[in-house]
Design a protein around this nucleic acid. Sequence first.
DNA 1: GAGTCAACGATTTTCGAAAATCTTCCAGAG
DNA 2: CTCTGGAAGATTTTCGAAAATCGTTGACTC
Lengths: 224, 224
Amino acid sequence: MEAKRAGGRTLAGDAYEAIRQAIRSGSVKPGERLRFADLQALCGMSVTPVREALARLTAEGFTVLDDHRGYSVASLSLSELRDLTAARQLCEGEALRLSVEKGDADWEARVIAAHHLMARIPQAREDIPSAIREDWEERHAAFHAALISACGSPILLEICEKLFSRADRYRRLSVSVSAGARDPAAEHRRLMELALARDGQGAGAALREHYGRTAAALEGFLKE
Amino acid sequence: MEAKRAGGRTLAGDAYEAIRQAIRSGSVKPGERLRFADLQALCGMSVTPVREALARLTAEGFTVLDDHRGYSVASLSLSELRDLTAARQLCEGEALRLSVEKGDADWEARVIAAHHLMARIPQAREDIPSAIREDWEERHAAFHAALISACGSPILLEICEKLFSRADRYRRLSVSVSAGARDPAAEHRRLMELALARDGQGAGAALREHYGRTAAALEGFLKE
DNA sequence: GAGTCAACGATTTTCGAAAATCTTCCAGAG
DNA sequence: CTCTGGAAGATTTTCGAAAATCGTTGACTC
């Protein structure tokens, strides 16, 4: 959704990555308050770039701002998970349908390549089977992005990307809760096959079901 | 989508309002570069709150950021209008369908009240018929927000609000281009009647057509 | 004992200048 | 004449401290 930072263009970009990583990995917990003093120590910089990073994270739903009370990590809840799932089913389902309809041979190649990269490595870490592998998560995001990449709507793509990254923390929970109970590899393969077979309706339905299962695996594990 | 600022909670909030207003009113043009020196003079404050305001505006699509080259006003284009229209038809159409399905008597009252307030004043200014009245635009936004307010999905509401405000600049153009050619009052009334009659499909279709007409009125007027 | 209010401590928010970066422009070589 | 190199100027980005604000504590009144 924004300019890609190779890792050192601006300090604000670095701070964004660092804080985002701290939130995703769980080293700062949902609902926890984020003090500027701590974040400055963590990122090794002054307050200004940290402030800009938090502004971006807030726009993406990772943090929340209370005037004069500062920022804190957004909470996780069952109701937000349901809401997020429904929104993703609507937006990404439609984007996939459009993409299947409009995609050319380049798009097919992108989908196949992304799927191959993702299928090549296991989802969970070998040392901690309840934890997700960072590189798998990256390739997983790339696969879903590739699927909808031919939809022709930058705005829809931006919405989908935001929703996808916002669902990231729930996805991690899902892996640790339902380790081995599902077969995500099969679901992804089926998704790809339907898309390449130009079955837009079927692919959309499979995607919605795919997301529905992830959400269902977390029902009962989250309160409220 | 964020905490409401009564007008003086933080300077950053004031800067956000001021710059947003400058962009919407057209006193800074699409594509134009926004220098911090100018904005500081405009807002009467230091660089820090201006920077935060621009971060928020960028998240909402009003401005764009190039690393080390600063911010500039987002351009208008025919392709973005089409994209925006399609996204709004998808998201707001679904939100309206859900709202009609779930809305209670309070929701009905909110819709009727919001429509009454909007219908009570003319859309265009009396002195400059090609310019939109600020208070009408406010009530127009409130009416559309009321229609979908019972959809039960905070995330979908946030997306719709962002898309609606992002379409604001196109809407102003539409008024100046097609002054008198359409009858938006009738469209709004029909929309309300279908919603109150609990015709979710019909209301959704009417909304999509409503947006389609606004977009069509601008075809040929925008290049690219 | 309950309630009010002022002062304190912690934290955010803002400032004004310094540092870093990009763009432009001009001189000099090929 | 065109292209490369580099210094000057303009602008963004970052810093460290000052100002403003919020929550709390504790004394004081009723």
